[in-house]
């Protein structure tokens, strides 16, 4: 069978056998949206706005955690070294993790769509649901790249902690939990430097609630961020095989 397919299949099996990975990944955005978007209703009747916010928050988790924690584990335990001594194509290894992260993110999106439509009465056109899914599924890439960087730099025991140190503040400072206008001015300035801010603005634009900045700038930022992460990773390639010593 094709190497890329088998790699993705086995990576998915590992994920499905790791409830500590997927249960929090599924539960957090759904529960947060329920409390802050539906019960407390921070958006003051605009549940579609908070749907986008929590969708962005939700899809960041799988690429961050999967890429960072699994790569750190595979590096630390020598699993990756053994694979790299085989004729495995490194791209197939990364591809498997990217695809599976995106699939998990798509499931999170589906759960949030159902929740928002059922409990919060969110109604969007079919093309809007489709476009949001496309944006947020492709939008896992910058976080996957950052996850890979974390996975290349830290040991497996530290990876989840480091991801949380990056993921949660990034979500908060991008206005994914609470709208940015409720936060101090300096937070808004910090937000401009974060990929999650630019991704969520693309989502808001789909429901007609984006900021005044051109969408091209958000897309360019996300592309540049991903490319720069990959460039840094290229320089650290020796760390994947344990051959940096």
């Amino acid at each position: 069978m094709n190497q890329w397919l088998v790699e993705a299949q086995m990576d998915m099996r590992v994920l499905l056998r790791s409830p500590s990975f997927y249960l929090p990944a599924f539960a957090f955005p759904v529960v947060f949206y329920f409390f802050f978007g539906i019960m407390v209703d921070f958006s003051n009747g605009h549940s579609d706005y908070l749907l986008i916010s929590y969708a962005c928050f939700g899809i960041m988790g799988p690429p961050f955690f999967h890429l960072a924690v699994s790569i750190a584990s595979e590096r630390t335990h020598g699993w990756l070294t053994l694979k790299l001594l085989s004729p495995m194509q490194f791209n197939s290894f990364i591809f498997a993790k990217l695809v599976n992260s995106a699939l998990f993110s798509a499931v999170i999106l589906l759960l949030l769509y159902i929740e928002s439509a059922w409990l919060a009465g969110v109604r969007l056109w079919f093309w809007q649901w489709g476009l949001l899914t496309l944006i947020f599924t492709l939008g896992t890439l910058p976080f996957a790249a950052l996850g890979m960087l974390i996975g290349a730099l830290v040991a497996d025991r530290a990876a989840a902690g480091v991801v949380n140190l990056v993921y949660l503040p990034m979500a908060l400072l991008s206005g994914l939990w609470f709208p940015l206008f409720l936060m101090p001015d300096w937070v808004q300035w910090v937000a401009y430097g974060l990929p999650s801010y630019h991704l969520v603005q693309l989502g808001y634009a789909v429901i007609g609630k984006g900021d005044e900045v051109s969408l091209y700038w958000h897309i360019i930022y996300l592309c540049l961020f991903s490319i720069s992460m990959m460039a840094v990773l290229k320089g650290l390639s020796g760390r994947f095989s344990g051959s940096h010593s």
Binding site: M1, N2, Q3, V6, E7, M10, R13, V14, R17, S18, E74, H77, G78, W79, T81, L82, K83, L85, S86, P87, M88
Partner: peptide
């Protein structure tokens, strides 16, 4: 390898299937 190992979550059959796909 002395320090080599494979992912413990996969069965031996799955490991073999995975490594067979590389060759």
């Amino acid at each position: 390898m002395q320090e080599g190992a494979v992912n413990g979550q996969l069965t031996v059959h799955e490991q073999i299937t995975l490594y067979r796909s590389y060759y």
